[in-house]
Nucleic acid binder design. Structure first.
Length: 296
DNA sequence: GTTTACACTTCCTGCGACCT
DNA sequence: AGGTCGCAGGAAGTGTAAAC
């Protein structure tokens, strides 16, 4: 069976609206579906693991994985039994005059197991100079958690003008994903050549990686590797590793670890240096971040 | 496209002082 | 007690130019 394609028109004319957003930790083995939803959904896995069945595809999800599906695409999400996942979820509409959220719950319907075999609906934008860009169903983009959590926070506290802020941040999120999709299409680009190193850092940000080790994973000389790395990520290998460590440290701090424990878990032997790194990346100290995040 | 040498820069750590 | 900051010195990383 062929999957259907929805044309969303030019990206610049999009008026998306958040309908619901939350951050939660699933129970071991907790399931959503098989079901369909009335709008579209983006899920960002913060930690742990889960499996998503979408159409005739199955995705094993881990930290930093993102998935997307639209309305009427049968799917099922199952949290890992041994390593339950914590994730941020955003329900949204692609085009809506008003940015005010409309809760999707009444439109969520259970469906038959057999309907999971239907191919998921794809969505495409038109981009001047690039043609039609398909919005991906599964992707990994480093450091996307801040946008997801910003949306969750805005949705939860409903401060003055929150619906407009939700639309603005969601638009930014969509653009970041589309940009990533555009650069990712070029598989011979520098990013693909440093993929083993990116994967190693992603899996073990707490390991004491040296530039030489990372270069070795990709089969390049350290100096040349550093140049490729900067071209592909915009950061030096060391700085990229720091960004990954702080991203992971933010998760651990949210899970009620002390700053000392988190620093140690992330491979820092000096809490002082950890605090300095944390502040340079986030603009706040670990304790400030912890205080601010208690409300989330 | 890739490696090498080298100068320069940045990182990392330990220590002590200070703050909350 | 837990957390932050400034400082100094050694280690490691980075950028550049030249060469293959």
């Amino acid at each position: 069976m062929l999957s259907s394609l929805v044309h969303l028109g030019p990206l610049a004319l999009l008026r998306p609206a958040v309908n619901f957003a939350n951050r939660m930790t699933a129970a071991p083995g907790q399931e959503w579906g098989p079901r369909t939803i009335p709008d579209s959904q983006l899920i960002y896995v913060i930690s742990g693991q889960a499996a998503l069945t979408l159409g005739n595809e199955q995705f094993q999800l881990q930290s930093q994985d993102c998935v997307f599906y639209g309305s009427d695409s049968p799917h099922r999400l199952v949290s890992s039994v041994s390593d339950p996942c914590t994730f941020a979820s955003i329900h949204f509409s692609w085009h809506k005059e008003s940015p005010e959220p409309i809760h999707p719950m009444p439109g969520i319907h259970h469906c038959l197991e057999s309907e999971l075999a239907q191919p998921a609906t794809s969505y495409a934008f038109h981009m001047q100079g690039h043609g039609d860009i398909i919005f991906p169903h599964h992707f990994v983009i480093p450091n996307l958690d801040s946008l997801f959590l910003q949306i969750v926070r805005e949705y939860r506290f409903e401060e003055l003008g929150y619906a407009s802020v939700l639309r603005a941040v969601l638009t930014q999120l969509i653009v970041v994903i589309v940009r990533h999709q555009l650069t990712g299409l070029n598989t011979s680009g520098p990013r693909s050549r440093i993929a083993p190193a990116l994967e190693a850092i992603r899996k073990q940000p707490n390991a004491r990686w040296t530039a030489e080790e990372l270069a070795g994973l990709c089969g390049y000389h350290p100096t040349y590797f550093a140049a490729l790395f900067r071209e592909g990520t915009g950061h030096s290998p060391k700085h990229y590793l720091v960004l990954e460590r702080i991203r992971k440290a933010k998760q651990l701090l949210l899970e009620a670890g002390t700053i000392d424990e988190v620093a140690e878990k992330m491979g820092y032997t000096s809490i002082h240096y950890f605090c300095r790194n944390f502040k340079s990346v986030t603009g706040m100290t670990p304790s400030e971040f912890k205080r601010q995040s208690i409300v989330l």
